[in-house]
Nucleic acid binder design. Structure first.
Lengths: 130, 130
DNA sequence: TCGAAAAACAGTAATAATTCCTATTTTATT
DNA sequence: AATAAAATAGGAATTATTACTGTTTTTCGA
């Protein structure tokens, strides 16, 4: 993987935010500093970074990919109302981690991991609707 | 919600299978019995049934919606290799259920539920690649 | 430092899942 | 049977993402 200004800008932006942006949002933000960057470049780099475990790709229920440069293990919360993604401080219950770690059950499939996220109405949207 | 032949066929097919089909797969299957059915009708009905909790919509990592007429609580397994979705017999650890049930943490968001699924390589694909 | 090969780029076209639209048909109701 | 509401078929439109192409950058050894 060669060095590139565009990839650096994308990585820098992702490291600077906790908003779990989509490709489109990354594109709009990075375009402020590098106006000629193309959306294709953003997608290619997000895929490259995710494939190399430098960033994490999140698949929430809106079907749009969100990205997170924080690769430490933590859970996410998806707001059904505004579509924003938040970090959660919920500690993974030991029993659940153990279950995933065992990586197997009677089904015969090779279980390699688990996807977990929470959903509901975020703090801001709760205030708006009440 | 009025009665309709097309919706019955869709529901019947979903109840008859454990394959967690996509809209396209439902369309292809139902078309055998009702050749004039349109893909739009399949999508509209799947959305209607899911909104009324008659079926469940699954969002796995392929980004394509899968549907399941089994609304009892159970976990799913997604095969990274072939994209098929399977039921799992893993029992939800009590601690994890409790965590979800508490529906809240210090974040201030209103947590309404959690999405959990497992992924890896399915029985069939493990055999193929070994 | 120069030059070739590999990698990355911008810009655009193509893909694919899903939704939207419209005129017609079906269903439920009085 | 008449009518209003719901549903349909078929196709157009939308949208996130990927693929393609010719050009520019980066790397790295001579």
């Amino acid at each position: 993987m060669n060095h590139s200004k565009q990839r650096d800008l994308i990585t820098d932006y992702l490291m600077s935010t906790k908003s779990h942006p989509t490709a489109e949002e990354v594109y709009n933000e990075v375009k402020l500093k590098e106006p000629t960057i193309s959306l294709g470049t953003v997608y290619r780099n997000l895929n490259l970074l995710a494939d190399n475990n430098i960033i994490v790709r999140l698949h929430m229920k809106d079907g749009i990919d969100h990205f997170d440069a924080d690769t430490s293990e933590h859970y996410h919360f998806y707001c059904n109302c505004c579509g924003r993604v938040y970090d959660l401080d919920i500690k993974a219950p030991a029993a659940f981690n153990k279950c995933i770690a065992s990586k197997g059950d009677a089904s015969g499939h090779r279980i390699e991991g688990a996807m977990v996220y929470f959903y509901g109405t975020c703090k801001d949207c709760v205030l708006k609707t009440d």
